[in-house]
């Protein structure tokens, strides 16, 4: 497993009508292998841009990103991606979706089949291999997306609001699944989310980002993700220390949102 190193990343979008947006300003951080990082912040703070740069979908205006010793210049099977929705292949069965990565790498059915069966079990979809994507609920579709990402055995999993389209109950269950996957595989995970609660529960590191220019405003190292593996997550979420940090971050984000609104109004 390789550590991630983000060095002085700047991202400036040129607008078609002239002018520019400073989406990220001088972002630098190191992330050890096996960490779970969650990115929080008001809209426009550049958290998805940062994720896309790490994924290799976007090139930074300046600065470099390294995974281990390799500089990131484009997407790679080392860095698996889970999107909010719409990234599954509807023309393929669940099993074929999961085996997509191995098949693209030229693996034969005999090589990837046992792994697909194992992954179906891991994400709780045993026996669903032959189902079609459109036959599954939103939560089950995200389970397929996670399994498909894992099938490539990536160094790191990147998630762009993976649970954003799910109802509250399914979302809680899926949070548990992601925690278990993180613990069992030991892979690094970076997740963008809008939910403060989700970010605090899942992230052993939380970045709270601020907009204009996009920057990392606060960094938290939290114990909740580890504790959630053994403790009851509901109790954990209602515990005073969890609530305290949640309120602190919410207040901070609110402040920023107000500031943005005020700036736009004037």
């Amino acid at each position: 497993m390789k550590p991630l190193s983000v060095r002085n990343v700047d991202m400036v979008y040129e607008l078609p009508k002239g002018g520019s947006v400073h989406a990220l300003s001088d972002i630098s951080f190191e992330l050890d292998a096996g960490r779970m990082l969650t990115l929080l912040g008001p809209s426009g703070c550049g958290k998805t841009t940062l994720l896309n740069i790490i994924a290799g979908f976007l090139g930074a205006t300046s600065g470099e990103v390294y995974l281990g010793d390799d500089q990131i210049t484009g997407p790679s099977r080392e860095r698996g991606m889970v999107f909010q929705q719409g990234a599954l292949f509807e023309w393929l069965s669940v099993a074929k979706n999961i085996s997509f990565g191995p098949r693209m790498a030229g693996q034969k059915p005999a090589q990837y089949r046992p792994e697909v069966t194992r992954l179906l079990d891991v994400v709780g979809l045993s026996g669903f291999g032959d189902k079609q994507i459109y036959e599954l609920s939103g939560g089950m579709q995200q389970r397929v997306a996670l399994a498909r990402c894992l099938a490539n055995d990536p160094e790191m999993m990147l998630m762009d609001e993976p649970l954003g389209a799910l109802d509250a109950l399914t979302r809680e269950k899926m949070q548990g699944l992601i925690l278990n996957l993180w613990n069992d595989t030991g892979k690094s995970i970076i997740m963008v989310t809008h939910s403060v609660e989700e970010a605090l529960l899942l992230g052993d590191t939380v970045f709270v980002m601020a907009p204009r220019p996009g920057r990392i405003e606060k960094v938290y190292e939290l114990p909740f993700a580890k504790r959630a593996l053994t403790e009851d997550t509901r109790e954990l979420k209602s515990s005073p220390e969890f609530q305290e940090i949640k309120e602190e971050i919410l207040a901070f984000i609110w402040e920023m949102e107000e500031e943005i609104m005020g700036r736009e109004a004037s």
Partner: peptide, 8 residues
């Protein structure tokens, strides 16, 4: 993007 990330 998912396809490229999966190594296509």
């Amino acid at each position: 993007r998912a396809s490229y990330s999966l190594g296509a």
